[in-house]
């Protein structure tokens, strides 16, 4: 299954999202994670907050290929995209294991093939380094076999790199 998370303008997003099996619109119309661990310990793979992200971990967890389109924010995902990621930790379990010689959570849905991050917006070299490093860590954390980070200077280039 190919899944996309994007913070694109809703008008621009439609054409891009139609190329995927499932699209998560990072439009900011949801609450931030409360850090309660309820999606691990109370209602597994489900968030107690009943908004558009309450079961998003079940979608992201089953992605063979995950594409994230995000505006740069200090070398991090935009707040709206990061909000989606924070609310999706139920795709793992509370149990721990070692991956890449560091402690991580075991994966509820098993390993994935490709995690691709496409970053747009003004970005410095230091922020690019941070983004590459973060995406690499995310790929290990979420059990991806391959990780790619691409930087585009203008959103019109998006079609070429999807």
């Amino acid at each position: 299954m190919r899944v996309i998370i994007d913070d694109l303008d809703r008008n621009a997003a439609a054409a891009v999202e139609s190329r995927f099996d499932y699209a998560v619109a990072a439009d900011g119309r949801y609450a931030p994670c409360q850090g309660c661990f309820g999606c691990w310990t109370k209602h597994p793979a489900e968030c107690f907050m009943k908004d558009s992200l309450s079961q998003v971990c079940r979608i992201i967890g089953q992605a063979d290929e995950l594409v994230i389109v995000t505006k740069n924010l200090y070398g991090s995902y935009s707040a709206d995209v990061k909000n989606v990621m924070d609310r999706a930790i139920g795709s793992s379990t509370p149990f721990s294991t070692y991956r890449d010689r560091q402690m991580h959570h075991t994966l509820r849905y098993g390993r994935h093939a490709l995690r691709k991050v496409i970053v747009y917006g003004d970005i410095t070299d230091a922020e690019k380094d941070t983004f590459r490093f973060t995406a690499e860590r995310n790929a290990v954390n979420d059990g991806y076999d391959r990780s790619e980070v691409l930087f585009i200077s203008d959103i019109s280039e998006l079609e070429d790199v999807l």
């Binding site: 200090y74 991090s76 954390n141």
Partner: peptide, 13 residues
């Protein structure tokens, strides 16, 4: 949170 800054803190930043 997920190898980074929690989203509500990013908004504050």
């Amino acid at each position: 949170y997920v190898d980074g800054v929690p989203s509500h803190v990013l908004r504050f930043m």
